Each structure stands twice: as structure tokens, then as C-alpha cells.
Amino acid sequence: MSTVVNQTTPHRSGSVAVIGRPNVGKSTLTNALVGAKISIVSNRPQTTRHRLLGIATFAAGKDAPAGQIALVDTPGLHRQQGKFSASAMSKVMNRAARGALEGVDAAMLVIEAGRWDDEDTLAYNVLSDAGIPVLLIVNKIDRLRDKSALLPFLAQVSQGRTFAGVHPVSALKRNGLDALVKELLMLLPEAPPMFGEDEITDRSERFLAGELVREQLMRQLGAELPYATTVEIERFAEDTSLKQGELLRIGAVIWVERESQKAIVIGKGGARLKEIGSKSRLQMERLFGRKVFLETWVRVREGWSDDETALKAFGYE
């Protein structure tokens, strides 16, 4: 984004919900706007399970005000049908997505270029009832083979629906984001920043550590165990025997629902668990900016994903 400072332009600040069906790139878009990885991503639907705040701060540009956008990344809205959709976790995730609209100034409806289905309609209807400005974000335009089909698709999607603006983007390639940020800021009230300019999320490092382990589980085991795993951080502490802040010691418990699933996570000779831990640790070191010593264990709690009490214990809202 432009870093040219314009002292005469009023600062704008507010919150924006990021809404859409599963797997359209909401978390990738949030990370791209924040400029750091705060939301985990994988190619599996329902990777995002929590409502998460990403803080994007922008200096004034030639045609855009300085501002701060609090992006509320959400689980994908989905219809309540099928085995997973009837579970307690599914209901918690839908509540988290709908609850993200409380008190926000605007919203982005994120869809995939070339595709609109019933769950997109569900998300649009939820936003229509909220009474706030909605920008349509058509993501993954880099994957659209026939670029000439984009304009007819935009016309089709916009027919009979009201949007404050339409933005074709590629969150992964960071294409189209400058124009999007400019319009988002203009939808927000004139107000001072809500957070420090170096803050990127309201979540703790402990929470982010658990999410990074779960990201590796979704990436490596999403096809085998799409919803049967969660992560609990049992230990998160600086090593006091070393220079302050030099090393974090983290203990992560991977919870599954059956003994057979435990064996899948551990893998032959412990190879799968070792790989999950190694890749998680590297991501933590990149995000936290310091060395990490990570220990992982796998434990069984039967039926945790359909148990409201267990979900609350594991931090699900």
C-alpha cells in the first residue's frame, strides 16, 4: 500500500466482517490485508473454526485516507444438513459467523470467481438482514481460465442483489487489493485508530500456536480426519534459563475422537506426528520471531466435536 502521508485527510477506523461459504479464501484475504499470517489456511473446507480479529493499518495515500480496519475473519457459513452440519461444532461455527456481524460498520461477502451456489445465497441473505454496507469480493480470479467470462458472471451475480461495490481480486497473488482497501476505508467512520499500528490481532500467541498446529493437521490429514482433530496448548512459556524472549517452550495436545484416529495422527514409527510438529514449529518461529521448542502429544476424547461442554473447554465460542 502507499506510504505517502497526507495530514489533511481525516483518519478512518472501524470494523469489517469477512463473510462467505467455506473455502472461498476469507482467511487468505484477511492475511493479505493485514500483511501477516494470523488466520490459518488449507484447501479443506471449515479450516477456520473461530471468529478471529485481524488488524490492518494503512498510511494515507494520494487518493485514500489513513485508516485502520479491524477485519473479523469467520468460519464459513454452511447449510445445516449432513452429518457434520448437524454436529455441535457446526452449530458453534455458524453462530460465530453470524455473530461477527454484531457492531461492525461494513462487511465483505467473499465468493469464488465463476461460482455461486446455495451457500453463497445463504451468506448474502444473512448480510442483507444486517443492514450494513456490503462489498462483493470475487476472489481467485487468477484461477479463472476464461477471463472473458468474468464480466458476465459479475452481472449475473449482481442482478437482483445490492452491493456497495464489487471487487474482483486474487488474495493469494495480492491483485486488486489497493482499490479494495480504498473503498473499505471510505465506508468506515472518521475516527482515531482502535489499536496500535504494530498490532495485527487481538488473539494471544498461545492461541495462534494452537492454530498453527491445527493448520498442519488440516493440511496433512484433512482428507482422512477432516473434523475429528483439535489442539489444546498445555504449556506456553519462555525458557527462563536463557536470555529473556530467546526461546519459547510450547506443549501441544492433539485431541482425536477414537484410538484408530490417534494411530493415523502419529503415523508409522511416529513419522506423521514428527512432520506435523516440525512444520508447526517453523511457522511459529516465523510468526513469533524467536526460537521455539515444541512438544506434541495425541490423546483421545470420544465425541468431543459433538459435545458443547468439550467445545467450550477447547476454546470454541
Rank of each mutant, 00 (worst) to 15 (best):
M1H: 14
T3F: 06
T3S: 07
N6A: 09
N6C: 09
H11S: 02
R12M: 10
R12W: 03
R12N: 05
G14R: 00
S15T: 09
S15V: 08
S15H: 01
S15D: 05
V16Y: 00
V16A: 00
A17C: 06
A17I: 03
V18P: 12
R21T: 10
N23L: 09
T28I: 01
N31P: 06
N31T: 04
L33Y: 01
V34N: 11
K37Y: 02
I38W: 04
S42L: 02
N43R: 13
R44Q: 14
T48M: 05
R49E: 11
A56F: 04
T57A: 14
A59C: 13
A59G: 13
A60R: 04
A64S: 14
A64Q: 15
A66P: 09
A66T: 09
A66K: 08
Q68I: 12
Q68M: 13
Q68W: 09
I69T: 08
I69C: 08
A70Q: 10
L71E: 15
V72S: 03
P75C: 01
L77F: 00
R79S: 12
Q80D: 14
A88F: 02
M89W: 08
S90R: 05
A97T: 12
R98K: 12
A100H: 05
M108L: 14
G114H: 04
R115A: 10
D120I: 02
D120W: 01
T121H: 01
L122H: 04
N125W: 02
V126Y: 02
S128I: 00
D129P: 00
A130G: 07
A130T: 08
D142I: 03
D142T: 07
L144Q: 04
L144E: 09
L144F: 01
R145T: 12
D146L: 07
A149C: 05
L154D: 13
L154H: 05
V157C: 03
S158T: 13
Q159K: 06
G165M: 06
G165E: 13
V169G: 02
S170D: 11
A171K: 00
L172H: 04
K173E: 15
N175I: 08
L177P: 03
L180P: 09
L180C: 06
L185Y: 01
M194A: 14
F195D: 13
D198N: 09
S204I: 11
E205G: 11
A209T: 14
E211L: 05
Q216R: 13
L217F: 05
L217P: 06
M218R: 12
Q220W: 03
A223N: 14
Y227N: 15
T229W: 14
V231D: 04
T240A: 15
K243H: 12
E246S: 15
E246V: 02
E246D: 14
L247W: 03
R249W: 01
R249M: 07
W255M: 14
E257C: 04
R258M: 13
E259C: 04
E259D: 15
K262L: 13
A263S: 04
I264Q: 00
I264R: 00
A271D: 07
E275M: 11
K279G: 04
K279Q: 15
R281C: 07
Q283F: 05
M284E: 08
F288Q: 08
G289E: 10
G289S: 06
V292S: 05
R299P: 01
V300Q: 11
R301D: 09
R301N: 05
E302Y: 07
G303V: 07
D307E: 10
D307W: 11
L311N: 01
F314L: 15
F314P: 00
G315Y: 12
E317V: 04
